[in-house]
């Protein structure tokens, strides 16, 4: 395979939080690269630093209390030193974010349409009508029924799965080079989970977006990721191709993660007890 220039390059990323009890390291110097049209899976259990990493990439962490070091290069441009106003235009336009709880990602007091149009017009010169047309087309593209009708609805009138697909539709319109999907399906039921993952897959295929897929659920990773990095206590303990990871996990922690999955096949009670003790 011809190795292309990475879209996003992270080098020596460190995140430290200033707490009353002293300085706590949340991310301890991690490096990774993301390539166009590829899905990079990021796995690890709660508290391993997955979400902090994604927020650090977008510089959304509280600057007063949290110190971020290291280099984040987006298509050759260093993001760490950028002015906040410049960073504003990077967020959404160049790096999109899809969060776990779609209910919190929208304002409850504005319609889907007005939020959609506002977001598009922040980043692109377009009239209201043009933006609305683009929005409806994008919502139809992610298989949302009655897109024109949905524009007039408020977030609470839509289900979690629908809101998450609206979020993906917004990302489609802005065509960011990188999308960070932080547990995009954790709050959804199984059928919606599959729908959202399919749309993410189409997004990367059609637009060549690089996706950072953060999840604690290894079956989500198995479904979508090309490469995987495993985080534990703020460090990357393993990185490999997704097939390699499932067939020949190297690190003990990865093996533990792979075993700690409920499966549809019967499991002996002895092994269950082992997990309880772990």
């Amino acid at each position: 395979m011809v190795q292309t220039e990475p879209v996003l390059e992270v080098n020596g990323l460190k995140v430290q939080a200033n707490t009353p009890d002293g300085i706590v390291s949340l991310v301890r110097g991690i490096n990774f690269e993301m390539h166009a049209g590829k899905v990079l899976g990021l796995v690890g259990e709660s508290g391993s630093g997955k979400t902090v990493t994604s927020l650090a990439l977008l510089r959304l962490l509280d600057r007063k209390r949290i110190l971020v070091e290291g280099s984040i290069r987006l298509m050759g441009t260093e993001l760490t030193g950028l002015k906040l106003s410049t960073m504003q235009s990077v967020r959404g336009k160049d790096i999109g974010l899809i969060m776990q709880n779609p209910m919190n990602a929208f304002s409850p007091v504005a319609t889907i349409g007005s939020q959609f149009v506002e977001t598009i017009r922040t980043h692109a010169r377009m009239t209201r009508n043009e933006a609305a047309e683009l929005a409806i087309a994008a919502m139809e593209d992610v298989r949302l029924p009655n897109a024109a009708e949905l524009m007039r609805r408020y977030p609470f009138q839509l289900s979690g799965g629908m809101l998450q697909r609206v979020m993906i539709a917004i990302c489609m319109c802005l065509k960011p080079a990188v999308i960070i999907a932080d547990e995009p399906t954790t709050a959804l039921d199984a059928a919606n989970q599959l729908q959202v993952l399919r749309q993410l897959d189409r997004l990367r295929e059609n637009n060549g977006t690089a996706v950072l897929l953060i999840s604690h659920d290894l079956s989500v990773i198995a479904e979508l990721a090309d490469d995987v990095i495993v985080m534990q206590r703020g460090q990357i303990v393993e990185r490999s191709d997704v097939y390699q990871l499932f067939d020949h996990p190297q690190h003990a922690y990865t093996k533990q993660l792979l075993q700690a999955r409920p499966t549809l096949k019967a499991r002996e009670p002895e092994s269950l007890k082992e997990y309880a003790r772990a």
Binding site: E45, D217, L218, Q256, L257, P262, L272, A276
Partner: peptide, 10 residues
């Protein structure tokens, strides 16, 4: 998360 799910289930 998955690890905790399995632990709580067992």
């Amino acid at each position: 998360d998955m690890v905790n799910q399995t632990r709580i289930l067992s």
